[in-house]
Design a binder for these strands. Structure first.
Lengths: 165, 165
DNA sequence: AATAATGTGTTATATTATAACATACTACTT
DNA sequence: AAGTAGTATGTTATAATATAACACATTATT
C-alpha cells in the first residue's frame, strides 16, 4: 500500500512536498527525453502549492499573477495533458480539476480520497484493490486498462471539526 | 455480486430492460411519495434506450424529436438530478453523461465498466470492493460516504472484434 | 376556491474544454 | 553557423457542459 494520506492530513513541511515533486518531475522528464518547459513546470508547481486540486482556469489565474503575459486555456490544457501522460498529475473527473501525483512511476490504483469540506485530495495505491477489480473484470470478460476511483467523504481534520465547518 | 454485465454484452430483449426499469421507477417514486412526471419519465426512458450513457444535451435533442416543445437545459438537469437522487440514474463523471441504474435500491458499489470503443457501460456491485475500500478509509481516518469507480477498457464484443473497430 | 408546495419555462450566463491555424523555439544535421 | 524537422506555444474563436435567477404553471391540500 502506498499513500500520501498521513502527510496530507497532518501539518508538514510542504515546501519539501513541492521540491520533491519537482525533483522527481525533472528526473522523469530527463529519462523520458521530453522537456519540462517553464510553463509546464510552473503549472506543476502550482498544482503542488497545496493538496487541493485546481481547475484549468484557476491555474490560468494563478499563472497570471506569477508570469507577465496571460496564458490562454489551450496552453494550460496542453501542459496538463503532458503532465498527465507522464504520470505527474491526475485529473479528478468529478471535480474537473487536477492534482499532483505523489508517487509517479509507482504502481497505481488511482484511488482518491476527496474531502467534501476542505476539498483536499489524498491518493492511495493498493494491490488488493487492483487484484479484486481485475478479477471482476476477468469474470465479465472486460479488458480492463485504466481506472479512477473517487471516494467522497470527510478527511480526519474536517470530520473532527478541526477545520471550520 | 450484482451486475448487468452479461445482459449488456449479449443480445437481449432490450424492451424488457426498458419496461423493467420504468416499472421499478414508478414503484420507487410511489414509495418515496414523489412524482415521476412526464418529463422525468421521458428522460429515464431515453436513458434506457441503450446501455450507453447520454449527455444532457443529447437528451435534449432526443426529447425534441419526441415532444413538441423544445426543453431547455435547466429542465433536463433538474430531471436528471431528481432521478439521481432516487438512485434511478448514475452520472459517469469522466463522460459527463448519465446512465440508467440496473438495480436501484440495492446495495451499490458504483463500479462502471466503460468500453472505450462502443461506449457501453455496465455496472457492478460487489461487497468485497466496498469492504476493502472501507478498510482503507478507516486506516486513513477518512470518513467515507460515497464513491464512483470507473473502469476503462474494452467490452467483450469490442475486444473480440465483433464490433467494428 | 384559496393556498402552499412542487415542477417547469425562460433568459442569460458561467464554466470547462477544444479546434484550427500561426508563430516561436529547440535540437539536430550538414 | 544556416537550414531544417520536430516540438511547443500563441491566438482567436467556439464548442460543450452546467447553473443562476426569476416568472409562470401545475398539483395536492385545506
Amino acid at each position: 500500500m502506498l499513500t500520501n494520506a498521513r502527510l496530507v492530513y497532518q501539518p508538514h513541511d510542504h515546501v519539501r512536498c513541492i521540491n520533491a515533486a519537482l525533483d522527481r518531475a525533472h528526473e522523469i522528464c530527463a529519462n523520458a527525453n521530453v522537456r519540462l518547459t517553464a510553463t509546464r513546470e510552473a503549472i506543476l508547481k502550482l498544482l503542488w502549492q497545496s493538496h487541493q486540486p485546481l481547475g484549468a482556469y484557476q491555474l490560468q489565474q494563478q499563472l497570471a499573477k506569477v508570469s507577465d503575459k496571460p496564458i490562454a486555456p489551450p496552453t494550460i490544457y496542453r501542459a496538463i495533458e503532458f503532465l498527465i501522460e507522464l504520470g505527474l498529475v491526475h485529473r479528478i473527473p468529478s471535480l474537473n480539476a487536477f492534482v499532483g501525483c505523489p508517487f509517479p512511476s509507482s504502481e497505481h490504483s488511482n484511488i482518491f480520497f476527496i474531502c467534501e469540506n476542505c476539498k483536499t485530495v489524498a491518493e492511495i495505491a493498493d494491490n488488493r484493490v487492483n487484484t479484486l477489480l481485475n478479477t471482476l473484470c476477468d469474470k465479465a470478460n472486460f479488458k480492463h486498462m485504466l481506472q479512477t476511483i473517487e471516494l467522497f467523504g470527510l478527511c480526519p481534520n474536517c470530520e473532527s471539526g478541526d477545520n471550520d465547518e
